[in-house]
Design a protein around this nucleic acid. Sequence first.
DNA 1: CGCGACCTTGACTAGATTCAAAAGTGGTGG
DNA 2: CCACCACTTTTGAATCTAGTCAAGGTCGCG
Lengths: 244, 244
Amino acid sequence: MKYENPIVRKLRELGSVSGEERLALESAVSTVTRIPMDRDMVSEGSHPNFSTMLIEGFAARYKHVPSGKRQIVSIHVPGDFVDLHSFLLKRMDHSVVAFTDCRMALVPHERLREITDRFPNLTRLLWLSTLIDAAIHREWLLGMGRRKAFANVAHLVCELYLRLRVMKLTQDFRFDLPLTQQELADTTGLSIVHLNRALQDLRSRHLLTWEAGVVTITDWPGLVRRGEFDPTYLQLNVDELSPA
Amino acid sequence: MKYENPIVRKLRELGSVSGEERLALESAVSTVTRIPMDRDMVSEGSHPNFSTMLIEGFAARYKHVPSGKRQIVSIHVPGDFVDLHSFLLKRMDHSVVAFTDCRMALVPHERLREITDRFPNLTRLLWLSTLIDAAIHREWLLGMGRRKAFANVAHLVCELYLRLRVMKLTQDFRFDLPLTQQELADTTGLSIVHLNRALQDLRSRHLLTWEAGVVTITDWPGLVRRGEFDPTYLQLNVDELSPA
DNA sequence: CGCGACCTTGACTAGATTCAAAAGTGGTGG
DNA sequence: CCACCACTTTTGAATCTAGTCAAGGTCGCG
């Protein structure tokens, strides 16, 4: 398949994009840049003048509590708009960190303003992509509030598996997930010790393996059951949901 | 002050609205309707063809876990768009319930489509209002993952106080909050017993009283401290933040 | 008065955190 | 190639936070 601008590709997943709209999107990307692992790409309190689409690598949004504990509020995979909301929100209410070396496309807010002035259809698609982010937030709220640790971890793995599969970043039920257990713990709101034990639960039930940053789901239906996972909130197409 | 359409009022808080835009918004409301207490106004899995703005009363969005436990993911006060996201999301990923008898304005998705086709500025304001919802979700994630029960309860009270004050629904540090402790527990992800004890902690420290559905904050700085509350994420104007 | 809904309390249990230390891993420089 | 270092994962034990179960109390209302 020939090269397709990642932003165009993303929005075409969400709805139809005309030729003219596609051109506008393609010219919106000002730079493609790299960020090294563990570097903050956006800082809480700042007001960036561009938004970022992740092309390669993993990134996360996070906030801190005064005691210094960190909560990750969002994990991003290639193809995700990481901070599209900074286009309209005055100040960042959280930071964004690169989990791995990342390659990303910068879209100046100026360009977004032009696009949203001229292309209502594109505006709705961009808006929709932030609404899906919010739907993921809600599902995480449910998990942290009402699910047990092991279920929430299983749920997260299921979610990441589907999100990566849409981007063709899985082979069968295997995918790279270069996160440390500390990062996982900060995502699920658990201590690292308890997260480790939750993972062991899933491993001992032969639902998955996780070695050297590579996850293999060995029992998808079992993992879905243990994670009480229902993918509706991800708004994926049904044909993307049938087994790989 | 003369009557102002609540949707116009909401968006004018977020940015400027021209005369023509105002007319378009005013004609977008098809019906004002009432919902009795404890009735679901939107159901998970449905695809409504209108969105709802709450004019009077309290409502909440919630999801269930298979065991039947409920997690409230959002509390809404008058002036909030409760399900604006249903305009673009295909299926509701959660339900909406009326905590009290509610009065609300219905806006057909058709009208929203026309508005978003013709008024890019209004589209951005509507989009922004859903982005603030998402910012609140993120703050709740931080609270549920990394804050202690009493801090999270204090934080929620601080948030609701400010959101209600913007709508002029507070007198000094007092406001109606007609929620049961079960509803509070479902919001904070706690059991009702533990929530009750968290409330007692705040009461015994003379930070607030809560009787017959009326909250009085008796020590705002103390409550802010105990809740580790920083209102940045609400995107309110600074002049709205100075003490009442 | 009695009922139902809600709030409060006590006692016990379960889930999760903390602290501490050991074991594994990968990379670097001598 | 190996020794060393930093980082990460794993384990054990003690402790704390929050959940569960059960009962009693309060309040408003028919």
